[in-house]
Amino acid sequence: MTERSKSSEPHFRVRRVYDPPSSDDGIRVLVDRLWPRGVSKERADVQEWMKDLTPSSALRS
C-alpha cells in the first residue's frame, strides 16, 4: 500500500477536459462556466458540471 492510499484525506487530480478519459480517473468533474468547444458530453465523460463555482460572465469580461 502506498503512503497516499493510507491517508484519509481526499485525493484529486486536475486534468484538461480535452484529455481522453482514463480508467483510473474516478469521478470526473468539469469546473468551467462554458462547455468546451468541440467536446461532446459523451467524449468528456464528466459526472458533474460545476459551472456555478466559476467566475460570473460579467467578471470574466
Rank of each mutant, 00 (worst) to 15 (best):
I27T: 07
V17L: 14
L53R: 09
D19S: 06
R4K: 11
E42D: 15
D45Q: 11
A58H: 03
E42H: 10
R60I: 05
R60G: 07
L53Y: 12
S56M: 08
M1H: 13
W35G: 06
S56R: 07
V29N: 01
D19F: 03
R16P: 11
E3A: 13
A58K: 04
K41W: 04
V14D: 10
R16E: 15
W35R: 03
D52W: 11
T54C: 15
P55F: 08
S56P: 05
V29T: 03
S61V: 02
R4T: 10
P10C: 03
S23G: 08
V31Q: 01
R28L: 02
S8C: 10
S8L: 13
D24T: 13
M50V: 01
P55A: 14
E48Y: 01
K6L: 12
P10Q: 00
Q47A: 07
L30I: 00
S61W: 03
L34R: 13
R33P: 06
R28W: 01
R13A: 13
R28T: 01
T2Y: 02
L59W: 00
V39E: 14
S5I: 07
S23W: 06
K6P: 03
R15T: 02
V31H: 00
R16Y: 08
D19A: 07
L30C: 06
R4E: 12
S57W: 01
S61H: 06
V46F: 06
R33Y: 05
S61L: 04
W35V: 05
D19Y: 03
W49N: 01
S8D: 12
D25H: 09
G38T: 07
R15I: 12
P20W: 02
E9W: 09
R37I: 11
I27Y: 00
V39T: 15
S23D: 09
D52Q: 14
S5K: 10
E42Y: 10
F12G: 12
R13I: 06
G26Q: 09
D32N: 15
A58Y: 01
R43S: 14
V46L: 06
Q47E: 04
K51I: 04
R60T: 07
R15Q: 11
D19H: 08
R28A: 01
P10Y: 05
D52R: 09
R43Y: 09
E3Y: 12
K6C: 14
Y18C: 11
P21N: 15
D24A: 07
S8A: 14
R28S: 05
